[in-house]
């Protein structure tokens, strides 16, 4: 995704690396520091593939490089944005697999695992609630937070269902 985020920023206007880093961090509500090295590796790959071009400040190829989007970079960006996301969110991936492993191992204490998982989800929900209150000014980040809250609520309901059904099975 970093690749497309960079293309997206360059669709606006050419930037040098540092501007790309701060621009991206700002778009994420200033909550996340992006690794500089990662940005440069991605940029050089994009340049190699002809999706962006870099021009150096000095004639000898030194100094800050300014990157701009090439026509095929623009085409690549648009193609990516036009595609619907086909893959569903992984459903409780890790926790579900742990439940299955428990079953394979013949452990019959799933209720303890469920209780622990509920504690973890509730704690996350609390933190996201606070984040939701503090991120109201940033519409994009607050959308992400609200989405995560809705998913957590569903996860918690699903844990209740697991508890009920596994209990019924063991009776």
């Amino acid at each position: 995704m970093l690749r497309y985020a960079l293309l997206g920023l360059l669709a606006h206007q050419p930037h040098h690396g540092y501007e790309l880093k701060t621009g991206l961090e700002q778009a994420l509500g200033g909550n996340w520091e992006i690794n500089f090295g990662q940005i440069y590796t991605t940029l050089s790959r994009l340049e190699r593939d002809g999706l962006v071009t870099g021009t150096a400040e000095a004639e000898d190829g030194r100094g800050k490089r300014t990157y701009s989007l090439t026509p095929s970079g623009k085409a690549d960006l648009d193609a990516s944005l036009e595609q619907a996301v086909e893959k569903p969110r992984p459903l409780h991936d890790e926790f579900f697999i742990k439940l299955v492993i428990r079953h394979l191992a013949g452990y019959d204490d799933a209720h303890l695992a469920l209780a622990r998982q509920r504690q973890a989800y509730l704690q996350q929900l609390r933190e996201l609630n606070l984040a939701s209150a503090s991120q109201q000014e940033d519409p994009l980040v607050s959308l992400l937070v609200e989405g995560a809250i809705l998913h957590l609520q569903a996860d918690l309901q699903w844990l209740g269902m697991c508890e009920e059904r596994l209990e019924a099975l063991s009776k």
Binding site: N31, W32, E127, L128, L144
Partner: peptide, 12 residues
Amino acid sequence: GQDTHRALGQLL
């Protein structure tokens, strides 16, 4: 805990 930073960091 009031650590909203951690939760947001994980999300992003």
